[in-house]
Each structure stands twice: as C-alpha cells, then as structure tokens.
C-alpha cells in the first residue's frame, strides 16, 4: 500500500458495490420480522370478556340505527349507524382507550362519529367498569361480516399506535340476511352517555 493518495482499484470498487448490492438484497428479499410491529390481536364475540392485559373489554351490545337521538342533537345517518356498546375495565392504571374502528369484510375501515353524544374514545381507571357507546356511519354493504377493533392505541397512521400492544377484534355477528333487515329497519337509538357499567360486564341492559 502506498502512503498518500489512494487509488481507486477494481477490487475496492467491487467491494463497495458488492456490499451495497448485498445490503439491498437482504433488505428487499429477506422477510422483515413483522412480529415486531404487529399488535397482539384478541378475538372475541359480543358479550365475551376479553383480556387485553391493560384492560378487560366487553362489547355488550351491537345495534343499528338510522337516527341517533342524543341529548343535545339528533343525527341522521348517511348510510346507517352501527352502534357498539362497550364496557372497559382498566387493570393497571388510568388508561385512555383511543382506538375504535369498524372493518368490513372487504377490509374497508370506518371510524366513529361524535355526533349525538356518541363516544370516540373512553377513559377509565381500575376499580370499575366504564361504559362507552361508539357510533359508526357505514354503507349498506359494510354490515355483512363487519368487526369492531377496540384498543388503547390509536388506529391512525395504519394502526401505528397499536404496534406491539393488545387489540380486541370483535365480530359484530351480522350475517348476510340480517344485514338486509338491519338496513331496511328505521330504528332510532339514543346513545347513553358514558358512565359506570352494570355489575357483570357480560350482561346487557338491552
């Protein structure tokens, strides 16, 4: 090796280019460890108590409404409202449950509305069960096979706030024929204001 200036050699060039190509190949073709980013999904059904480690969650009731009659205002649906009553019982400390989203069978995503006193998030502490009513305005073809996804993490930015954290996915139990009936019915639902839930989280007042 000479002192002073270094020469660009074929060998050196090949090493650098080869290294870059090898790195790009690794990143492109070796499967990333998706487990690092994936949330821990806890699946369940309406009425089931789901353990999310930071909270116990129960989806107590699912209804469909054309109109929401709140205390301050009434709201008519653009499509139809899926009204999801849920009960949160925090298990670690005071927790804000920010994630609430309906996904239909085609993978389309629907976010809740705060019209007519519906909740878009819930905040609860350990020691009691807290009830929240979420309302999602969805089109007719979203009803069949829809699920609701509830968590403490935010679902914005491709569920970024839910990475490596527990997430509940609850099947709303709406099948094809039911979907048509629910769509045609002209129900009015009065969303309850958030409050203490009834004793057994699994029970439902409806």
């Amino acid at each position: 090796m000479r002192h002073g200036r270094r020469r660009i050699t074929w060998k050196g060039t090949a090493l650098v280019v080869g290294g870059v190509v090898a790195g790009c190949t690794l990143v492109t073709y070796v499967p990333q460890d998706t487990g690092v980013d994936e949330p821990f999904i806890v699946e369940g059904a309406v009425g089931e108590v789901l353990d999310l480690t930071y909270a116990e969650l129960t989806v107590t009731e699912v209804r469909v409404a054309d109109t929401l009659a709140g205390v301050a205002e009434a709201a008519a649906a653009g499509g139809t409202f899926i009204v999801v009553d849920a009960s949160w019982r925090a298990t670690q400390g005071e927790t804000t449950f920010v994630g609430a989203e309906v996904t239909d069978a085609r993978g389309r995503r629907f976010w809740p509305t705060d019209q007519a006193g519906c909740s878009i998030l819930a905040k609860a502490q350990p020691g009691y069960a807290w009830r929240a009513t979420y309302c999602f305005d969805v089109p007719r073809d979203a009803l069949d096979g829809a699920t609701v996804r509830l968590a403490r993490g935010d679902q914005g930015e491709e569920h970024a706030g839910q990475r490596r954290d527990a997430v509940a996915v609850v099947d709303l139990g709406i099948s094809g024929r039911e979907a048509d009936e629910l769509w045609q019915a002209t129900e009015t639902v009065s969303p309850q204001e958030p409050g203490y839930a009834l004793a057994s989280a699994g029970g439902s007042e409806g």
């Binding site: 653009g78 389309r108 976010w111 705060d114 019209q115 969805v138 089109p139 979203a142």
Partner: peptide
C-alpha cells in the same frame, strides 16, 4: 355540517354519502 340535521360530521367513512 350535515345538511340534514346541522350536526358536525368530522369523518367521512368509505362508501357513505353525506348531504
């Protein structure tokens, strides 16, 4: 605002037509 009832529509969900 919703033209039907004057409520605030903060989110437009896929496939839903709002006036």
């Amino acid at each position: 605002l919703s033209a039907k009832d004057g409520t605030t529509i903060s989110v437009f969900n896929p496939g839903v037509t709002h006036r």
